[in-house]
């Protein structure tokens, strides 16, 4: 049977690395949610390897897209045809899943965002500013401190019987507040529920300030798995929250959709390196450039010992070098 065309989307975030493969009719064929674990390159290699084992013989990748805070790195390693910021990627994906979506709440590992759409286009957005108090990594940390698996965190909140107020403005304050409440004898369930409410309160005050949150509202990103947070959002907004089936890989899904769109209007073949390329050895090396007082921290990506990309320099000297050697 003739193999179908497919598109790959990769979202390298601070906490998770997600991969999605979609077919010509935008259906998700395969999805992966992996922990980045501070090592984005090995997370991507592992992801590609798993995808290759599962569906490698059945799919032909016609285009690849990269997004997330590690999108530049991902773009080089997988050979992406398009590298997009995560706001656009999340908006594109949410619109595909919930046509006519007007508000997207997205909470990831290190940052949270709100995206407002009107008439099918992004109208406004905001990202968290100074602190990661309202994000997944903070919840992760608290779950670990309380010895509760993060997957069960939300269900604890739903069992709460009374509301306990936790300071939500700052992660350090929140943690000390939680410890105080716990030492005075409040139940774990009440405290966790209080934390969910604090996080939602912080999110709405910080990001959603002066924005009209209209339905349909989609809640996505890794934290959408937490039913306690979703419930707290519904209570605070008095509106219904939709959690899409692929809530945790929406960024990667969006990247795949954008790659598909890009390839439809392009005649050139995909830059995707292929599943075999995971055999290559990838290494990132950091160099401190001493040529001027900026002392830029330059990153060099090596594939089988050959530099394939460099970045991090302010003057462009190093990044140009890699680009030229690529051509020559």
């Amino acid at each position: 049977m003739e193999k179908q065309w497919h598109y790959l989307g990769v979202d390298v975030g601070s906490v998770s690395t997600n991969l999605v493969i979609i077919d010509e009719s935008d259906r998700v064929i395969e999805k992966l949610y992996l922990r980045t674990g501070g090592q984005p390159i090995s997370a991507m290699r592992e992801g590609l390897k798993m995808l290759s084992e599962r569906v490698g013989s059945k799919v032909r990748i016609k285009g690849a897209g990269a997004t997330g805070s590690g999108r530049q790195l991902a773009g080089v390693i997988i050979g992406a045809d398009v590298v997009k910021n995560e706001i656009t990627a999340h908006a594109v994906a949410a619109q595909k899943v919930v046509p006519g979506v007007k508000t997207i709440l997205e909470i990831g590992g290190q940052d949270s965002k709100i995206i407002i759409l009107r008439n099918g286009i992004v109208y406004d957005f905001a990202m968290n500013t100074v602190c990661a108090a309202g994000t997944g990594s903070f919840l992760d940390r608290q779950a670990a401190r309380l010895n509760i698996p993060i997957s069960e965190f939300g269900s604890y909140a739903l069992k709460a019987t009374s509301s306990v107020r936790i300071a939500g403005r700052c992660a350090v304050f929140a943690e000390s507040d939680m410890i105080h409440k716990q030492q005075t004898g409040h139940s774990l369930e009440d405290i966790i529920n209080g934390l969910c409410e604090a996080l939602v309160r912080n999110y709405l005050n910080n990001l959603a300030k002066s924005k009209d949150i209209e339905e349909p509202i989609v809640f996505q990103g890794g934290v959408a798995a937490n039913i306690g947070i979703a419930a707290a959002f519904e209570r605070a907004l008095g509106k219904k929250i939709i959690i899409p089936g692929y809530y945790d890989v929406m960024g990667a899904y969006g990247a795949a959709l954008i790659a598909k769109e890009k390839m439809a209007s392009s005649n050139s073949p995909s830059a995707f390196c292929g599943f075999q390329a995971i055999e290559n050895e990838y290494r990132a090396k950091s160099i401190e450039c001493h040529d001027c007082s900026n002392q830029c921290e330059v990153i060099e990506i090596l594939s089988n010992g050959e530099p394939i990309a460099r970045w991090g320099d302010r003057c462009g000297k190093w990044s140009e070098l890699a680009r030229n050697s690529e051509v020559g």
């Binding site: 910021n85 656009t88 286009i121």
Partner: peptide, 10 residues
Amino acid sequence: DTRLEAFIDM
């Protein structure tokens, strides 16, 4: 960069 790119995209 993310904010700027998203802003220009928008």
